[in-house]
Design a protein around this nucleic acid. Structure first.
Lengths: 208, 208
DNA sequence: TCGTAAGGTGACGCCAGCGTCACGTCGAGC
DNA sequence: GCTCGACGTGACGCTGGCGTCACCTTACGA
C-alpha cells in the first residue's frame, strides 16, 4: 500500500474526485459569467488544467454538466428553505424562516446566486419548471396547507407563492448589491411586506 | 413613376422595410425559443426567406439585432407603465395602474413576454441594469417622490421597488399560464398584496 | 427605353467547438 | 520491482457559424 493521500483514498481515486470537482467548479464560474447558451465545453476545460478529452471521461456533454452544477446548489437551498419553514410555529415564522434561509444562502454563496440568476431563463426552459419553479410549487403547497389549518387567510395560493418568490428574487438581487449584505434587514423587509399583503387580502375577502 | 406600393414608398424602400421587419420578427421568435446565447445569426436568417449575406446589410451582428429587438418591446412597456402611474391620484391607483398596464402587456403580447423572460439573465448582464432593471430604478424614484409627498409611508424605496417588480414578474408568469389570462384579477391581487405590505411597513415603523 | 447603382445572393475562406481515439503515463496490486 | 490496465492527453476529422465579396437582378430616374 502506497496510499499517500490524507484521505483514505488511493491516488487514482483522489485525482478522479479532484478532476470532477475542478470541472464542476470551473463550470459554475463559466456558466455564471457567460451564461449557459454561449458557454462551450472548451471554455470550461480551459479554466482547468485538464485536457479536453478528459472532460468526456466525466460528463457526456454540456447539458449533463449543467444539470449537475445546478443540482449541487439549488437542491440544497430548496431543501433548507423548506426545512426551515416546516419548523415554523406561526405565520410570521413561516414567512421569515423561508426568507432568512434564502437570503442567507445568497449572501454566503454569491457565485451560486449569480449562476442561477444569470441562467434563470435557461433553467426554466430546460427543466421546465424546476429549481425556482419547483420552489414555487412547494411554497404553494405549504401555503395551501397553512390555509387549511387557518393560519393563512383564504387566498390564491399560486399567486401568493409567485409573489413571495418573485419578491425574494428581486429583493435578493438588491440585497447582494449592498455592501455588506444585510440578511436580517432584507428578511424583515420581505416578511413584513408579505405578511401585510396576506392581512389585506384576508380583509378584502371578508369585506366582499 | 412606377411606384406600385400601397404605401407612398418605392419598391426598394418598401422591401427594405419588409426585410428589416422580417429579420426582427424572426429574431424575436428565435431568441424567445432558444435564448440569446445559443441562437446564431444563421438561425434567424433561416426563419426568413433572405440569404445570409443580406442580414449584414441590416445589422452588423447578433448583439445589435438583440438590442433592437428588445428596444422595440421593452421601452414601450416601460413608458406605458410609467405614464399610467403618473396619472394616479391615490396610492392605490398608483400601484394598480402600473400592474394593470404591465399585466395587460403580457396578456396581449405573450411572445414579447417569453422573449424577455427567457433572456432576463442575459439582458441584465448585457445592458447591466436596463429593461427591467431600469424599470426598478424608475419605480424606486416614483416611490421616493410619493414618500416625500406623504402618500407612501417611509420605507426602503429600493427594496420596495424590487419587491413590486419581482412580484409582478412571477405573478405575470402565473397569470399567463392560466387560460384565459385574467389581467384584472392579477392586478387586484398584486395591488392588494403590495398595498398591504406598505401599510404594515408603515405600522411597524411607527411602532419602533 | 436605357444606364446606373442599390442591394439581394450564396459560395467561400476562416475559425472554433465537437467528440474520438491511439498513445503514453503512472498508480495499484502482487 | 514488475505487470497491467485505468485514465489523462491532445491531435484529428468533422461540422457549422462567421463575415465577405464578386456577381447578378431590378428598381429608379432621366
Amino acid at each position: 500500500m502506497s496510499v499517500a493521500a490524507d484521505s483514505g483514498l488511493g491516488r487514482r481515486e483522489a485525482t478522479k474526485l479532484a478532476n470532477r470537482a475542478a470541472i464542476i467548479s470551473a463550470a459554475r464560474r463559466v456558466f455564471a459569467e457567460m451564461g449557459y447558451g454561449s458557454a462551450t465545453v472548451r471554455d470550461v476545460v480551459r479554466r482547468t488544467d485538464l485536457a479536453s478529452g478528459t472532460f468526456y471521461n466525466y460528463f457526456p456533454d454540456k447539458e449533463s454538466l449543467f444539470r449537475v452544477v445546478l443540482e449541487e446548489s439549488a437542491v440544497e437551498v430548496r431543501a433548507r428553505v423548506r426545512a426551515a419553514r416546516r419548523q415554523a410555529q406561526s405565520l410570521e415564522e413561516f414567512v421569515a424562516a423561508g426568507y432568512r434561509e434564502y437570503f442567507g444562502f445568497l449572501a454566503s454563496d454569491p457565485e451560486a446566486f449569480e449562476l442561477m440568476r444569470r441562467n434563470s431563463g435557461t433553467i426554466r426552459a430546460m427543466f421546465d419548471e424546476p429549481i425556482f419553479g419547483a420552489g414555487v410549487e412547494e411554497l404553494a403547497a405549504d401555503l395551501r396547507a397553512a390555509i387549511a389549518v387557518g393560519i393563512v387567510p383564504e387566498l390564491d395560493a399560486e399567486y401568493m407563492a409567485a409573489a413571495m418568490v418573485g419578491a425574494a428574487l428581486e429583493v435578493g438581487v438588491t440585497m447582494v448589491r449592498r455592501e455588506p449584505p444585510d440578511v436580517e434587514g432584507a428578511t424583515r423587509f420581505a416578511t413584513t411586506v408579505l405578511l401585510g399583503g396576506m392581512e389585506r387580502l384576508g380583509r378584502e375577502r371578508r369585506a366582499s
